[in-house]
């Protein structure tokens, strides 16, 4: 009884800000002048250009996720092996930038990467030649990874620090070396953290549009840019809505797949961020 009472504001909030807007999206995607239409769906699926943008977005998001995992896992591992107090202070440094808005952090990178920016100033003082970093594919990836890295580190760190030390000691006692212990014991036990990390990086990475515009100068546009362009610049609500739904379906599929993977691993340790 009490539980339902306290969840009422949340349910009302969800209906107003999640369900109703979704209905609007579905309405403008399938209804034109009061009639049901599949025109926008056909257009979205039959234009090769839109498909290739989608594929490019998936590839970029996958690369960004892989980079986050490659950087994030070792960091989380090192953190989890530190003294609790040191680890707490260090993980603060990863959380601290998240107190600032994501767009502001992206704008800050503009200042760093600009031709006459901080990075080039540093390079010239050190005697290196100036480089051109802004508006490149590399810059887009760098800022994407920077923005989403904490979402990879934190869930993995949480899981790793919860692993019972006696498992590792037992592995050592039974003669496993460090590498064996890591691959046979630590890594499998940390899978739930890796799965939530991947989900939490992949989804924002595939739906982002601000980074490719602000850092990529729209030379490497993603699916999010296409949706924004269709709705805001061309005023084509129908097509924009269909494109949004396609992206939504893709996100749902990836969440389901990730959950399946997690379930197959059998996570007795439990406690992911989802």
């Amino acid at each position: 009884m009490k539980r339902t009472f306290f969840s009422t504001p949340y349910i009302v909030w969800m209906i107003i800000f999640i369900v109703v807007p979704m209905l609007f999206i579905f309405y403008s995607a399938f209804i034109q002048d009061g009639h049901f239409t599949t025109e926008f769906v056909n257009q979205a699926l039959e234009t090769p250009l839109y498909i290739s943008v989608l594929i490019r977005s998936i590839v970029v998001a996958l690369i960004a996720t892989a980079l986050c995992l490659l950087i994030g896992y070792p960091v989380a591992y090192i953190l989890s092996n530190m003294k609790k107090s040191t680890a707490a202070i260090l993980s603060m440094f990863f959380i601290l930038p998240m107190w600032m808005n994501f767009l502001l952090r992206t704008y800050a990178w503009q200042v760093i990467l600009a031709d006459n920016g901080v990075l080039n100033m540093l390079l010239t003082t050190l005697g290196f030649a100036k480089g051109s970093f802004m508006y490149t594919q590399g810059a887009v990836l760098l800022v994407t990874v920077y923005n989403f890295l904490p979402f990879m580190i934190l869930p993995i760190y949480t899981i790793l620090s919860k692993i019972d030390r006696s498992h590792i000691e037992a592995a050592h006692d039974l003669g496993a070396n460090s590498a064996n212990t890591f691959f046979k014991v630590v890594l499998p036990l940390s899978v739930p953290g890796v799965v939530s990390g991947i989900t939490m990086v992949f989804i924002p990475a595939i739906t982002t549009f601000a980074i490719s515009r602000l850092i990529g100068g729209k030379k490497y546009p993603l699916y999010g840019d296409l949706i924004e362009d269709k709705i805001v610049a061309s005023g084509n609500l129908g097509l924009g809505s269909v494109l949004s739904i396609i992206l939504l379906v893709l996100v749902i599929i990836s969440i389901v797949v990730m959950h399946k993977m997690e379930a197959e691993q059998g996570n007795e340790e439990g406690g992911t961020l989802w």
């Binding site: 031709d115 006459n116 030379k219």
Partner: peptide
């Protein structure tokens, strides 16, 4: 022309040009 250009910008082009970029 696309390989020649630095970026497609909106209002931010003002700051970029003022900054000598």
């Amino acid at each position: 022309q696309k390989p020649l250009i630095k970026a497609y910008l909106g209002d931010t082009v003002k700051d970029a040009m003022i900054g000598g970029e």
